[in-house]
Design a protein around this nucleic acid. Structure first.
Length: 607
DNA sequence: ACTGTGCATGTGTTA
DNA sequence: AACACATGCACAGTG
């Protein structure tokens, strides 16, 4: 891309820059400049930028300007009333803001008033960045923005002249494939720690400063928020319902929710798998020797777990006992798990269509967010309008009480707020149902796609095998799809796999007589069965179907190797009752994760 | 009751 | 210690 503009960067007047705090230094990319300037031949002078605070992005419509920036780049004002300032946005639209100041101690506090329409037009929120530039020689002020959400950040990165950033951008793309907001956070976070020069690290830590103090301002720098969220989601992996506490069932609007009296407890992260019998089990890694051990699914593990704790398998209760899985199998399992996680995260971050908070949080969200509930980024950063310190989803007394601030609501309360919340909840549930049916249809279609190439396996396994060995990711990706479908089906049918109520005929080939019906969008019930079949396939069948027969032979050769002790002796192709490495859910067996509203439900719902 | 406005205050950052 | 700034808060205006 050859910019048609001349850019005086960075930034503007070095003289002034030295007076600005680094956090206001403009980091506008060429692409952004190009965007701002359009086809103009003018010189764009990046002036400064500011990460929007909650109050900047709030309804008040006042954007606090850094004093030094205001005094350096905006016209001098002597009266508090200031003067109207004409600023052009990236779309070429001109906005007129009141540029003024408030006396503050012996100083001034500069603000731009009336920015709400502009902020809304750009769909900005706290954590996003607004950039100010000047077009010379006209001196026209320009306003750009950079969304804190990574999708936009990615665009910025892609367009960056900085090879570092371009490389990072490519890396992010390749690393995440189908771009995952969340996955990228991790990379970005990682990059922040290491590879990026400080000047490119985005907003500094400034904004996290107030947290933890007496008057806690829950204002989290977007980067910190991302890291926190990530940590939270990682933590979610380890959260389990309290082992001895039985949830009570609460019915709200004909929907049942599990309510736990005790908060979730921490357990060790494990991978849950299902056997073809429907029995679930979990794989856990020893903290001492790092070997993976198979345990019953219903075991709550302590945060730290080692082989000697393995009282369920005496042959593997010591670190000296060999791995049950071969390295290749382990790799596949882990990659499937990783892929599943990635997809789950991506799914959970999809706007509204895929994700909805449940239970009280949903109500709280509904109460505080209204239609904004469909905007995940909004829920992650923006404060509620009700109580600036609180975030959407906050169900504290302040946020759930009526505007008048008097008293709590009873279940039978019919006040406007309660009725609105209830209506909203109904709408949400209807939407959820609708989405669920859409999702099922989608799964059915995907299923059709999945099964399609399988014919090739049957017809020409050698060719497929060659391809597979060269590019195992393809197979794994397919497995991942199945896995995802499997998880979804698991969510929807709840313990179907466990109870075997689905009456799955494992001998029924997916391409069998029912296939036509299976693949029809809308015949979700049948497709669910197919998916469950996939979920329940023995490892050998997985391997075979995906061209990894060499692994089977390797496994057989090495085992008596303990790969699958119980499977030896069974004829190939016959469904095994045990050891289906189909990571169904990584949550406890108790959970269709979207179905719960107790402490456990939040496992998949960090918001 | 709600909204807008102006100022005050508390806290983190910088010199 | 001084400064910058995010936001709390009181008060006035409006519906």
């Amino acid at each position: 891309m050859v910019p048609q503009i001349r850019v005086a960067r960075p930034p503007a007047e070095g003289r002034v820059k030295s007076q600005l705090l680094p956090r206001y230094w403009p980091r506008i990319t060429d692409q952004e400049l190009q965007q701002i300037s359009g086809d103009s031949n003018s010189t764009i002078v990046p002036l400064f930028e500011k990460v929007l605070s909650a109050s900047d992005a709030g309804r008040i419509g006042r954007l606090v300007l850094p004093k030094a920036c205001a005094e350096a780049y905006f016209p001098p004002i002597s009266q508090p009333e200031g003067l109207p300032l004409r600023i052009q946005d990236v779309k070429g639209k001109e906005w007129i803001f009141q540029f003024r100041f408030w006396p503050n101690n012996n100083s001034r506090m500069y603000v731009l008033e009336g920015v709400t329409p502009c902020i809304q037009s750009m769909q900005l929120q706290a954590g996003d960045t607004v950039t100010f530039s000047r077009m010379d020689p006209e001196g026209k002020l320009l306003m750009g923005f950079r969304k804190a959400s990574n999708s936009i950040a990615m665009q910025s990165l892609k367009g960056s002249a900085d090879p570092h950033l371009n490389a990072l951008s490519k890396h992010l793309n390749s690393a995440t494939g189908d771009f995952s907001w969340h996955a990228t956070e991790k990379h970005v976070g990682k990059a922040r720690d290491g590879s990026l020069p400080p000047s490119m690290l985005g907003p500094e830590r400034k904004r996290s400063r107030n947290i933890g103090s007496k008057s806690k301002r829950l204002l989290i720098d977007i980067q910190d928020a991302l890291e926190l969220k990530l940590t939270w989601e990682e933590a979610q992996d380890m959260l389990r319902p309290p082992p001895s506490i039985k949830p009570s069932i609460v019915t709200i609007e004909d929907h049942e929710f599990e309510e736990y009296e005790e908060p979730p407890v921490f357990g060790k992260r494990s991978i849950f798998t299902a056997r073809s019998s429907g029995e679930q089990e979990q794989w856990v890694q020893c903290d001492s020797c790092s070997k993976w051990r198979r345990l019953p699914a219903n075991i709550l593990l302590p945060p730290k777990w080692t082989c000697p704790d393995n009282v369920w398998d005496q042959s593997r209760c010591s670190c000296s006992a060999p791995d049950e899985l071969s390295p290749r199998e382990l790799e596949i399992l882990l990659r499937l798990y990783k892929d599943f996680k990635k997809r789950k995260i991506a799914t959970s971050h999809k706007p509204a269509q895929e994700h909805e908070p449940a239970g009280l949080d949903a109500l709280a969200n509904a109460a505080t967010l209204g239609d904004n509930i469909s905007d995940p980024s909004a829920t992650s950063i923006a404060t509620t309008t009700k109580h600036p310190r609180h975030r959407p989803g906050c169900s504290c007394i302040v946020c759930i009480q009526p505007p008048s601030g008097k008293g709590k609501h009873k279940p039978t309360c019919t006040c406007n707020v309660c009725m609105t919340v209830k209506r909203r909840f109904k709408t949400l549930m209807m939407r959820k149902k609708k989405r669920q049916s859409e999702r099922e249809a989608e799964i059915a279609q995907r299923n059709q796609y999945i099964w399609g190439p399988r014919d090739d396996v049957e017809v020409d396994s050698t060719t497929k095998l060659g391809t597979s060995l060269l590019d195992p990711s393809e197979n794994e990706a397919r497995l991942g799809n199945e896995l995802q479908s499997n998880v979804q089906s698991n969510n929807m049918s709840n313990n179907l796999a466990e109870t075997g109520k689905g009456q799955i005929d494992l001998n029924c080939h997916p391409n069998g007589p029912n296939r036509e019906e299976d693949s029809r969008p809308g015949s979700a019930r049948v497709s669910m069965m197919s998916l469950l079949q996939v979920a329940s396939l023995p490892l050998e069948m997985y391997l075979k179907r995906n061209g990894l027969t060499s692994l089977i032979s390797e496994q057989q050769a090495s085992s008596g190797s303990h790969v699958m002790p119980q499977t030896t002796g069974e004829s190939e192709g016959q469904p095994h009752e045990d050891h289906c490495i189909a990571p169904v859910v990584e949550e406890q067996a108790s959970g269709g994760d979207e179905e719960l509203s107790g402490p456990d439900q939040s496992q998949n719902d960090p918001s």
